[in-house]
Write a protein that binds this DNA or RNA. Structure first.
Lengths: 343, 343
DNA sequence: CTGAAAGCGCTTACAG
DNA sequence: CTGAAAGCGCTTACAG
């Protein structure tokens, strides 16, 4: 029913071998035969069967991508980056999630074993790093898109969480903010510690030790941002800035601050992390540390494509920089006793 | 290198045919041979090659999914829904986007021709409906996830845009809002007209004709929400509610209203459409018409899976209902001359 | 420059 | 109940 290489060969009066040669541009072949075969291919609209090619060649031209969830706010960006380069190389992207725990694990493992794809892009679903490392050890090309600093034993792309924390601190310091409240991410994530350390070290270098009571453990939710400022208020802790470890909790913090009648950015300046679309729509729009999610997806995919093309995978993480995006949730600290300007 | 059915057969002392039989549970076979083969399979950790099975059987156990973009706010939900059912049936999900216009079209067309997947789930990238219809006509099983009322000539899942418009209107009417400003979606989309019609008809049935000047053509962006209320203000049009055709523009509308010193929900009540995560985080949290995006993804995938299992695809759209989610951006209209309550 | 044949790893009539 | 053989649609030594 569907047309095959044999049909093309018959119609062009050549062998399947020859058709295969013009298809893949291998071996010397008479220009005129090649031309004739090409014509027949066009006439018939022939496209080789991916399955058959895959079986014969031993690879699929498909890359797998494993992610914890598709509904995280920045996941679309990473995916889009990966898909863009994968598609432009003529590969396909086979998507896997880890929504159903052990069952997902089973299913995915069996997809690996059945060799459904040539290489894997992965954002690590929590607790699966060992498993992924095994796959890599057994010879599956793997590139990790590292969203929380796992420092794995295989190729990865990462971003600069520590430097991101530094840039947030530097910005707030320049604005004269000396008492920042930090609302952290989930404690067990590496990125949380790196962001905090970068921030803290920068304040320390400026001669300001962070008040430990002003470090509140959040969990990346909007709600935890609210809780963070609520806590500080309840404890009557004085603060003139908030550094939240993601945009969602920064948004919650802004709302909680404003609900007490205080002004953002003047009374309290707020900095987030991620730069998801929501960051543009908070009131006021959020100053935040941009993570290059799309570029990370692209870079990871390019590494894999490069590997298929013969370039070895780098053994040190490919690190993409964060950038501070200044919007309106931060401003210079007003002088405590405003002077009436002369004139 | 990788272990094959021949290895299993040899080790178990049977033919490949027999191994295949126990794998697929076809044909009568001695319980003890079956048991023995199963043991060897476990010992060796054998999993059949997806490529080889695909070639031999003529199908891939992969479904394609084509979407316009991965970064739209509700796309993750649809994808997650689709992936969940596809995975739980042991299928894979091959993802395609249409980011690079004609080139994407080419690439995708060739993936179809190479029979990389058995069926297709699609959210129509603008202007590709004819192409998709051709694929369907040529025998590719296709299910459309209809986000804007295309009424295609092939199976689809859709939602109730008209009824969604009605529910928004009913809610606002109950609150005593008689002069709503409508900020529509993109004019050329069917969903825009349906939402508007449902809304308008409901007001009409209550004896209120919508002021045509109060229908502002937006484009689903946050910015267009702001522009909508700005326009109404500039024209000195009186309004006590906003019905925006998506949550993003509803968010913009809320901000623009509040910036004039007016109160949401009291002075102006705002209703959105979609119920993306952002809707919970506007100030105040947004009352909106929930679209069951995840369920649509699930339903579409289930239809395709069912078809592979022998159930014919329905020829009428599978319609999932919208639901009004009441949050805090809507409230009863205050009496114009407030009476002091007695005691 | 070109082709016959074997092989990729399965499934499936067909025979026994 | 079980197996030998052909076939799925390609690619790739090997010969000529």
């Amino acid at each position: 029913m569907s047309i095959t290489i044999a049909d093309v060969a018959a119609r062009a009066g050549v062998s399947k071998t020859t058709v295969s040669r013009v298809l893949n541009g291998k071996g010397e072949l008479d220009l005129r035969t090649a031309e004739r075969v090409r014509q027949v291919i066009d006439e018939l609209g022939y496209v080789p069967s991916a399955r058959a090619v895959g079986l014969a060649r031993g690879r699929t031209r498909i890359v797998g991508m494993l992610v914890p969830s598709l509904t995280w706010p920045w996941m679309g960006e990473v995916l889009q980056g990966a898909v863009d380069v994968v598609e432009s190389e003529g590969y396909g992207l086979l998507l896997f999630t880890f929504n159903r725990g052990a069952e997902s694990m089973q299913q995915f493992a069996s997809q690996v074993s059945s060799q459904s794809f040539d290489g894997l892009l992965v954002i690590e679903p929590e607790g699966t790093l060992t498993f992924i490392e095994q796959l890599h050890a057994r010879g599956l090309p793997v590139v990790l898109i590292d969203d929380r600093d796992k420092r794995p034993q295989f190729p990865s792309v990462a971003t600069t969480n520590y430097a991101g924390g530094e840039s947030a601190a530097r910005h707030l310091l320049e604005l004269g903010r000396r008492r920042p409240l930090v609302i952290t991410g989930v404690e067990r994530f590496g990125c949380t510690h790196e962001r905090l350390d970068g921030f803290r070290d920068t304040y320390a270098a400026a001669g300001i030790e962070l008040d430990p009571r002003l470090v509140f453990e959040g969990d990346f939710t909007h709600e935890s941002g609210r809780r963070g400022v609520q806590y500080a208020l309840d404890e009557r802790l004085d603060f003139d800035a908030v550094f939240a470890h993601n945009d969602l909790s920064a948004g919650g913090a802004i709302q909680a601050v404003r609900e007490t009648g205080r002004n953002v950015p003047n009374d309290v300046s707020v900095v987030g992390f991620d730069d998801i679309p929501y960051a543009e729509h908070t009131e006021p729009p959020l100053t935040t540390v941009h993570q290059p999610m799309r570029q990370m997806g692209q870079a990871a995919a390019r590494m894999l494509m490069g590997y298929f093309g013969g370039t070895p995978l780098p053994d040190t993480p490919h690190v993409l920089p964060t950038t501070l995006i200044v919007r309106s949730s931060t401003a210079p600290k007003p002088a405590p006793h405003p002077l009436r300007p002369k004139k």
